[in-house]
Design a binder for these strands. Structure first.
Lengths: 219, 219, 219, 219
DNA sequence: TATGAATGAGGTTTCATTCAT
DNA sequence: CATGAATGAAACCTCATTCAT
């Protein structure tokens, strides 16, 4: 069991049961999220975190053996939540029951993930930045996302292909196409242009339209 | 003139005329690119760069006053090259003459930027990672890319809209849609799944198809 | 409030309540005084100070943010003490009561400042050497000494002039004459010829005589 | 023969025959004087000197083996000039012929040394600051000044004592008294209060008066 | 003679981590 | 649990000096 696996288990627990944290520990985590997401993990110092958390320097190391452990405690739990909506047992049934049309599935998924991003953006930003440099995290992310999400998305695509709702083409480029468009929308909203005035509903509908019909006008 | 503006001017010159670099300076830049892209700027040490470059540590600081200046000397010039193909004088004429159909424009652009990415990927990776943390770079990037690319792309979109080739919709979401799809393709190719076996031409065609027609099957 | 002003306040406090220093901090200050006064501030290295203090180099920077702050913490408090004897509320009354004759005033002052110099010579030496190079210190010194000492000395001179004890002449050259003679005596004693055998009492009396009667024999 | 002795010989020659210096060497010396006197020897960098002199970094070391040699080349020659007026063969005869009264001797000496100080103040400032930290310089200064000046001054004092012009007292305190008063005047003029408006002639006369008659009014 | 790239030792400062209280 | 003084390795950077050109 890899380092991260352990952490994921332990730390998801810790994080989900945030009540079990002492007040100081919570302050530390909050301060760390803020500082990591502002300056990047490597450029953040534990002493600055301690200061912002209103805690002695040593206190951080009471709760987290190393600075990296603190990072993982913040970043690892978000990974499971990131894919949560796809990890439900009988996905196909849900599809049939709840999303008769591909558009419906897209609409619900985009809204849901956008809300998630809104609530957790700093942590997501940290995750995005640290994945390339933390091999543990990287490996885990690939297995986790790659296995879980891709499989589910493949199922979704094939489901709607079988229904004749969408084109018959290899699933991988289709998944990539949908994923990058949706992720592009979310990052534009919260990372690139957070200050712009957004009509989110409108943007979501337009994006769904483009995914479904492309640029060429329908006769 | 901001810090980065100066840098852009000076360093593009330096970089374009790489002959004016001493041999050691070139080694330093190469080593820095490699290490920065592997570990991130903040986690890279000048001593490691010196070692990999086969140079004394002091030599780095003879050529670059600070570590950050070294970073900028690497990253700033790439920005102008990134948008180079869009910065040609009479863009509309080029469009009319060379790209009768939107697909043609997309095909050429994607191929060109993919070649560019292949040649400069480590530096692009560094740029992507450091933009959020270097306000100078950030501001410059926004002005540079925002002004230049968005304007040109707006023109392109309106050009093909006027011709009736593509749908009448606000340009911003259309640009975003195209951009994220194309960038998504490129990052998938070189960042996320560089090890996979890619039939690039095929992927490009599929992506263009998806952009143009979306997921819904044509009658 | 200038840098030094802050320092003066804070550091006098710290220095006066030396008990609030940790043992190691005291060692650092002692080592720094010794080394600064032997080699000069700029030529002293923090690593040498740490070594002599028997402390890790990092420890110095836990207590003093910079090397210069360490210098100021040593040198600033001495300035207020340097002028302490002149800064008493009702100076004229003291003069009338305690020093009926100018000679008495000189004798007491010289003895007192000589004792002070004996106790603090290394720090005074550091101060003398760094004033020309630390503008903060310089400015402060001028205001402090210039305002305080010159004013008081002017009062003293005028007091004895009114009593007819000393000549009617502009006070500034008189103050300068007395000051340089006294300072010359003290520096000769502790800086230029510390190794010579001194009959201090005798030298003080001779100096007072010269100040009062000059070189020309009294009829 | 000590390091400094060699230097004194060689460098006085070089310095006196400044024509034998190349233009660049002269620029170096001028720049060094300026920078050393502003920031102190230890805090000045050879590269800054080279820059201000408009010379390549290496050029300094063509002319001076080390930075310290550059310092000595500047500072050593001033020492012989400092005492020049006292080093004439038949001093007593000069006294008898030219200075019938002690006041005359003082007046001429003060004026002469003041002119000298005006012309060479930066170098004198460097000398003052470096003497305590350059044992070579220190030793030399002591022998030089101590032997030469003290001897001559003793002669002077005894000469005027024999004539009954000044009091019978040990010569050492008298010399000290005169020296510190004169040096005090000169340093006040050029070091402590260079910006004040000075009536030099007036100040000189007052100072001579004070040296001769002290503070007590003459009946 | 003059240059300036290169060096490497050493400078100040930061930082994650430990540990006695 | 919490503290914060202490650590020492390592970070970035400076500098006097050398040497090929």
């Amino acid at each position: 069991m890899s380092e991260v696996d352990q952490w994921l288990k332990e730390l998801i627990r810790i994080n989900d049961e945030e009540d079990k944290m002492t007040e100081k520990q919570l302050k530390i985590v909050q301060a760390a999220i803020e500082i990591f997401s502002e300056k990047g993990y490597a450029a953040s110092s534990t002493s600055e975190i301690a200061q912002k958390a209103g805690v002695a320097e040593g206190t951080i190391f009471r709760h987290y053996k190393t600075k990296k452990e603190l990072l993982l405690s913040i970043v690892a739990p978000i990974m499971s939540k990131l894919i949560a909506p796809f990890v439900i047992k009988d996905f196909t049934k849900v599809l049939e029951a709840d999303y008769p049309k591909m558009e419906d599935f897209l609409r619900v998924t985009i809204r849901d993930r956008m809300t998630f991003a809104r609530n957790h953006f700093p942590v997501i930003k940290i995750l995005l930045h640290e994945i390339p440099f933390q091999p543990d995290l990287q490996k885990h992310f690939k297995e986790f996302i790659g296995e879980q999400i891709l499989q589910r998305m493949n199922k979704v695509i094939r489901h709607f292909q079988e229904q004749g709702q969408i084109i018959e083409a290899p699933t991988f480029p289709i998944v990539r196409f949908i994923a990058t468009t949706v992720i592009g929308l979310i990052l534009s909203r919260f990372l690139f242009l957070p200050e712009a005035s957004w009509d989110e509903e409108q943007e979501i509908e337009t994006t769904i339209d483009l995914i479904m019909h492309g640029l060429i006008p329908q006769r």
